[in-house]
Design a protein around this nucleic acid. Structure first.
Length: 359
DNA sequence: CACACGTGGAC
DNA sequence: TGTCCAAGTGT
């Protein structure tokens, strides 16, 4: 029986033993054989995976990670990529500021740091898109530094292990202290991934599998019977509903009129359909005068902080139409719906669903 | 500190 | 259908 307060080293050994038995396969991880041979994971791949995993599930990330690393195998390759290509490859993954910062960071590393990622928490933290979590993750996983990661999993595991009832986010500093006490000097990267794996597979938000948890004996919340209700969180605001109108203009040849959205703000840097800003009651703002047809059905989409209802209008793009500054005419051949953020892709899907056949 | 910032899966 | 949630960061 481990004593939580007297034997922190015992706890880290218990979870590392558990981790070594799991062998959860992910394309950015090194296998047990590589680890035994002292092979470190590629910092570029660790960085890329950690940025993709911010607020995003392993299942959603895996295919994106494979496509990115196949297309841009090294940080220099990514740094040399066109912005539009990277944004298109990121489309559908969400939180698009991550993709913009990813490129900024790649260019700093490639052009100012000789293609080498910094190996310390403090230096990593200075780079775009790398915050406290990601800096600690890269430093520990790629560079074997005993930094403490604090993500949603670690917060939940620590809150339960110590039966902490103070709500998030106020309890964050306390949870970080508790997590730091357990971080070992040996294999800190494996330890970090082990605690996150524990949170993802056993110490889950609902119905935690305490019976098979490597930390079931020292866990204060399991003993108190409070594990499923931890961590407490301050209540969140209700989501308002916004409305919008999008204008799908297609030429007789099948080319589409799209707009590159400004870098800042919602869906920043992504392609989208022309239309007014979304709000209470958006005013019609067609990109040109035409006999715009209302598709009738509406697009419904929920963002982090509001619901969206979109009307979809369609017209033929006039021959010789001159696109405005931020607009692009994308040829039928070059247009891929998967390059669009999901709300915009849903508008296209609505149009496509109304097409009877042929094309 | 509070808020903006996506998406899709689970229940 | 609605709510919660996932390996957070920037402002």
């Amino acid at each position: 029986m481990r004593d939580l307060n007297a034997d922190p080293g015992g706890l880290s050994r218990d979870i590392l033993d558990w981790y070594d038995r799991q062998a959860r396969d992910m394309p950015w991880r090194t296998g047990p054989a590589d680890r035994a041979a002292g092979v470190r994971p590629d910092p570029y791949r660790v960085w890329l995976s950690e940025v993709m995993l911010q607020q995003t599930t392993v299942a959603a990330v895996t295919d994106y990670f494979q496509r990115f690393t196949a297309r841009w195998p090294r940080v220099e390759d990514l740094a040399a990529a066109e912005d539009a290509d990277v944004m298109a490859e990121w489309a559908g993954l969400g939180y698009y500021a991550r993709a913009r910062n990813l490129l900024k960071c790649a260019r700093v590393v490639a052009q100012e740091l000789d293609g080498t990622f910094p190996d310390s928490y403090e230096a990593l933290l200075k780079l775009p898109g790398i915050g406290p979590y990601t800096a600690a993750a890269i430093a520990s996983i790629a560079f074997d530094r005993p930094e403490t990661v604090l993500d949603g999993n670690v917060e939940r595991v620590m809150a339960r292990l110590h039966d902490i009832h103070e709500p998030l986010p106020g309890s964050k500093p306390l949870l970080k202290d508790r997590a730091a006490e357990l971080t070992p000097e040996v294999r800190p990267g494996c330890y970090a991934q082990a605690v996150m794996d524990l949170g993802a597979t056993i110490c889950t938000p609902k119905s935690p599998a305490c019976g098979i948890c490597p930390w079931r004996e020292p866990c204060a919340a399991r003993i108190a019977g409070t594990a499923p209700e931890l961590p407490k969180k301050t209540p969140k605001k209700a989501k308002p509903t916004r409305h919008g109108i999008v204008y799908l203009a297609r030429s007789s040849a099948g080319d589409w009129l799209l707009e590159r959205r400004p870098d800042k703000g919602l869906l920043g840097g992504m392609l989208g359909w022309p239309g007014p800003e979304w709000g209470e009651s958006p005013q019609p703002a067609p990109p040109f005068d035409a006999d715009w047809q209302d598709l009738g059905a509406e697009v419904r989409h929920t963002f982090t902080h509001f619901h969206l209802i979109l009307r979809v209008m369609v017209a033929e793009l006039p021959e010789g139409f001159a696109p405005a500054e931020q607009q692009e005419i994308i040829t039928r051949h070059a247009f891929r719906p998967s390059d669009l953020p999901t709300a915009m892709r849903k508008a296209f899907d609505l149009w496509r669903g109304g097409q009877t056949g042929g094309d």
